[in-house]
């Protein structure tokens, strides 16, 4: 297992670094944010900057935030079953804002068939319940690192 917390405690972090910036959002009306917050903390502890937008975000708000924050990756958390409506809209809004190349990942209760469909629409990855945060971190590092 990878350690979740990097151990260079109290070392002054060089300012001249490009840190990975990840936007974590909860679209729709679902208020269960345990997963989103656990992931946000895990990404922070892996050295990333996480912009956390909170609950009830519309697709327009998410794309706008991704643009303003110059996010390297956008993560959505949905447990309400509304993913097949909400995720395509977020993708569409991101394309409209010229953010098509920014990877979008989705976490939550997503039936396997839907996960396949979402990936076909352009979602970079789908993470179900029980996914280790280390797996998410590794994916984000790979996907966000690939960005020009």
């Amino acid at each position: 297992m990878l350690p979740l917390v990097a151990t260079q405690a109290l070392e002054v972090i060089p300012a001249m670094t490009n840190r990975i910036r990840v936007l974590i959002a909860k679209p729709g009306l679902d208020g269960h944010d345990r997963g989103a917050k656990v992931i946000a903390r895990a990404l922070r502890d892996a050295g990333m900057e996480v912009i956390y937008t909170g609950l009830r975000q519309t697709p327009e708000m998410i794309a706008e935030a991704a643009l303003q924050e110059d996010a390297d990756l956008v993560g959505l958390s949905i447990l309400s079953g509304a993913h097949m409506t909400l995720v395509p809209r977020v993708l569409q809004q991101m394309r409209q804002q010229g953010l098509a190349e920014i990877p979008l990942v989705v976490g939550g209760i997503i039936p396997p068939d839907d996960a396949v469909a979402l990936k076909a629409l352009g979602v970079a990855e789908v993470f179900g319940p029980g996914t280790p945060t280390t797996e998410v971190i590794a994916f984000v590092q790979r996907a966000a690192g690939a960005r020009p």
């Binding site: 729709g28 009306l29 009830r56 519309t58 309400s80 509304a82 097949m84 909400l86």
Partner: peptide
Amino acid sequence: LPTQLGYDADHPLAEGEVGK
């Protein structure tokens, strides 16, 4: 969720959430 948040089924924010 729309019912729990006081939105009718025809509210824009209810889209995708009705009956879920």
